[in-house]
Design a protein around this nucleic acid. Sequence first.
DNA 1: CTTACATCCTGATTGC
DNA 2: TGCAATCAGGATGTAA
Length: 289
Amino acid sequence: MPELPEVETVCRGLTEVFPTPIAIAKVEVCEARLREPIVPQEVQSLQGSQVTRFFRRAKYMLWEVGEQLVVSHLGMTGSWRVINSSLRGGAASMAGTAVIEQQKPHDHVLVYLRGDPRILVYNDPRRFGLFRVIPKANWQEHPYFQQLGPEPLEKAKFTADQLLTLSRGRSVAVKNFLMDQKVVVGIGNIYASEILFRSGVRPHRLARRVSRDEFSRIVRESRRVLKAAIEKGGTTFRDFRQTGGGEGHFYQKLKVYERAGQPCRRCQTLIRQTTIGGRSSYWCPTCQK
DNA sequence: CTTACATCCTGATTGC
DNA sequence: TGCAATCAGGATGTAA
């Protein structure tokens, strides 16, 4: 589900909602069976600690909690929202009632705060997400992160030369290449199609057949699209929601994704849909070579 | 090593 | 209307 702009939106949303450090009072796990089972000892160790920062690496959201890091991946359908346990006027005796009223199916993790009536809730119907706690020391060396490629928005690390080198001899479609988190992080099925349209490159072209100039365009367009999507609060198609429950508005800017059979916004040719690597891909036969 | 494909799940939509 | 098939924004493990 969420790609880089959506995860970034969630991080920014939480940072906005919790500008000061927050203390975790209790973590309640309603359903531990996510992509990896939630470990009770890990969750318990968070109790009483301060969350000092929400940040992002690739499509992972990270919470800095003392000497540990909460690792939250949203999979396809995960979301975090904030509910208020004192909606009914703040009386402690009413808190339980209010919470129950706001609970939804597939709420798997509830993070209660100390001295704050709000509760952070993780919801994930398909349960492809992740909620684990790892040591903060050398976290980049952890298996979750060790193999990850560069952040596309960090200019020095994500370059056409880099892509050219990595792509030589690779007989995967350039779209799959771009979605490979070892090549560059944060790009998934929606943004891969959008980036390739804006770069004028057909998604099924083999990575090794893409020129240096084309990779330059891909690098530039990746940054443009991802930045623009962040500014719009991400893309909502089905499940994605911002922290406050709002939708992402970038879908209004999509040029090809889910537009099969509709005229290209640039040249009016009908947008085509093909399956590449088992995923739907959208492209314009005129604008993309 | 690379690449193709199944798999983990639930829910919405499509087609008969 | 009902029900089965299909598809969905991710990542990983397996096999070839």
